[in-house]
Design a protein around this nucleic acid. Structure first.
Lengths: 158, 158
DNA sequence: CTTATAACGTTTCATTTGAAACGATAAAAC
DNA sequence: GTTTTATCGTTTCAAATGAAACGTTATAAG
């Protein structure tokens, strides 16, 4: 009655494990070397691409819920890594941007994150890397069709 | 100073999102149709392959920590889906196995999980599917080298 | 203008989390 | 045989989580 279901060959399960391992390995580095949690790191990375942003902009770009972003931003502001200013035209919005220290820190973290990723991807050839992106893209699109777009991507559905 | 880090092209981040989406889509089904959480489903799937097992066997096979397994097993026993008997030779161990109802439920859930996976994978050709497994395998092996084998795979490193 | 509705970010609160402590049993060392 | 050490599963506890409620500000409708 095994019904042919092998957990090791069940994509959702394997994907979860791979994702966890990657997150864990990287999170350990953020934490040890820079004292950053993953949500904090993601906020920084998002601001690294565009500045200033509102908290809501970050929510949209990172697939984190707004409570989590709010907390991460608060910690970063408290740590002196971000500046938080009211938006001149819309008082509901915050204008988040790097402080001098935040910019410096990011200039250190980002290259290291990229180097780590490169090291991870070094087991793949260029062709394989391209394949990986393409495959993930396809799967993500397919699975997105099943999820009501409003549903937030919670953690720990595990 | 963007440092060339694009979150959308950053593997740990994209992997996390894909994994979340897949888990969410599937978890919604388990929950709605069978009232199962993912840990509960994993316990069932593990027992579907081999029976009886101890809680610890399940911990080893699922990459879940023992507290989570303990809770999932308790819920399943309480729901009348599992039988829990003391091991005759080692009183520390539990012998977990399907109850009649558990077996019936699993006979319903498992084919559905497989069908769902098949539907997800239907966007890929056979070749692509093989590639996907191979790529994931390589990455997992590579990243495992960085993780002290003792470290458990927590959720929500996010 | 006034009222109703919507959007933003924070906070609250019940739940989930996993590391560590725990009691109980077994195995190993002496 | 006694003591020490290790293993199993549960429970405890502090921290993280996220849905919902909230206060505030802006926009739309009347």
């Amino acid at each position: 009655m095994s019904l042919d279901l092998q957990l090791n060959r069940f994509l959702p399960y394997r994907l979860n494990i791979l994702s966890k391992k990657v997150s864990l390995a990287l999170a350990t580095r953020y934490q040890e070397r820079f004292g950053l949690s993953i949500p904090e790191w993601r906020v920084l990375a998002t601001l690294g691409q565009e500045q200033p942003l509102s908290s809501n902009d970050i929510v949209e770009r990172t697939a984190m819920d707004k409570a989590k972003v709010s907390r991460a931003v608060n910690r970063l502001v408290a740590a002196g890594l971000l500046d938080r200013q009211p938006h001149p035209r819309d008082q509901r919005l915050l204008r988040l941007s790097f402080s001098a220290r935040g910019r410096d820190l990011y200039a250190q973290v980002a290259p290291e994150a990229l180097a780590w990723e490169a090291q991870l991807l070094s087991v793949l050839t260029d062709t394989e890397r391209a394949q990986l992106w393409a495959l993930m893209e396809k799967l993500e699109q397919r699975v997105a069709e099943e999820i009501p777009e409003s549903v937030p991507l919670s953690d720990s559905l595990d």
